[in-house]
């Protein structure tokens, strides 16, 4: 096989994906850059914007709250929820992969149950959780008060001490199944021979986990971390529908800021500028991350 022929093959195999992606992402992304340099409202036609150079970026960074909002996005919304998802996801995936479940004939049931939160549309998941967490009539508070753990209901979504943890709980609950499922698929692809060989060598379970499971899962884990980080960072639905950024602006994140800028303040350009800033942050992250994982692989 000559390199040139294999390259050609690779291009042919990638072509359909590349065409679709270019069609639906490239043109809109360029348009987004144009928007970020214009003053334009969502009610104007696409050609009606006024060029204002970097004015939108000055405006966005001039917001005294910008850095607090960026910090919320990076730490609470993204880093914390991704970390929790990976930890719990790995634990659940390993548990669900265990032969114990097959012995008790509950493997299929358990795997189905784990996936269920994912089947609930995000909007509904949030509505249900808000109702569960309601400060007076919510089930959780009825249990807490009923059992005497707290004297009166806890307004989970109204006080700064609990609000972020509540949002984090909703995100982890809804998005955990994805991580579990991908890791489980990864676990199932590990050839049993490897474990067998290890056990012939006298390796215990913990050593087998470290020397076989983790290295084999690494390619999949790498992608999962990358993708969940980016998707969560850009997600606006969870915060928007749970607290709208409140109390005050305590839970505001970049994506909600973008949304209210574009659609409430009618500053499509400033919204696009926030979008670009978000893209930059994630691009830097993606490059650093991919470099780090690549050197690890070698």
């Amino acid at each position: 096989m000559t390199t040139r022929r294999t390259s050609l093959q690779a291009y042919l195999l990638s072509a359909p994906a590349l065409v679709i992606v270019a069609l639906l992402f490239l043109f809109p992304s360029i348009y987004n850059v144009i928007l970020s340099l214009q003053e334009i409202s969502p009610f104007q036609g696409p050609g009606d914007g006024e060029w204002i150079g970097l004015g939108n970026f000055e405006y966005v960074f001039g917001n005294p709250e910008f850095w607090a909002i960026a910090r919320n996005t990076v730490f609470w919304l993204t880093a914390l929820t991704v970390l929790l998802r990976i930890v719990f996801g790995l634990a659940l995936a390993v548990a669900l992969h265990s032969p114990v479940l097959r012995r008790w004939k509950v493997r299929g049931l358990a795997r189905t149950l784990v996936l269920i939160p994912w089947m609930v549309p995000q909007v509904v998941a949030i509505a249900s959780w808000r109702w569960l967490l309601d400060g007076s009539s919510g089930v959780l508070n009825q249990v807490l008060v009923g059992s005497g753990l707290t004297e009166s209901g806890v307004a989970f979504l109204a006080q700064t001490s609990t609000v972020w943890w509540s949002i984090v709980a909703i995100i982890v609950w809804r998005e955990l199944p994805f991580v579990v499922m991908v890791l489980l698929a990864g676990l199932q692809s590990i050839p049993d021979e490897q474990y067998e060989a290890a056990s012939l060598d006298g390796a215990g379970r913990i050593r087998a986990f470290r020397s076989i499971t983790v290295p084999n899962l690494r390619p999949v884990l790498t992608v999962v971390v990358l993708v969940t980080v980016i998707q969560t960072f850009n997600n606006f639905v969870y915060v928007w529908l749970t607290t709208g950024g409140g109390p005050g602006t305590y839970t505001a994140v970049l994506a909600t800021e973008l949304y209210s800028m574009a659609f409430f303040a009618n500053k499509l350009g400033a919204g696009a500028a926030i979008g670009l800033v978000m893209t930059m942050i994630m691009a830097v992250f993606a490059v650093l991350y991919m470099r780090a994982t690549r050197t690890e692989d070698q």
Binding site: A158, P247, S260, F264
Partner: peptide, 23 residues
């Protein structure tokens, strides 16, 4: 130059910040 929707967001946020003791 400021929309009603933005005023609404601003007022609700700032009032809420006082209720919750942030301000």
């Amino acid at each position: 130059p400021i929309t009603i929707a933005s005023l609404q967001e601003l007022v609700n946020q700032q009032f809420s910040a006082v209720y919750s003791g942030q301000s």
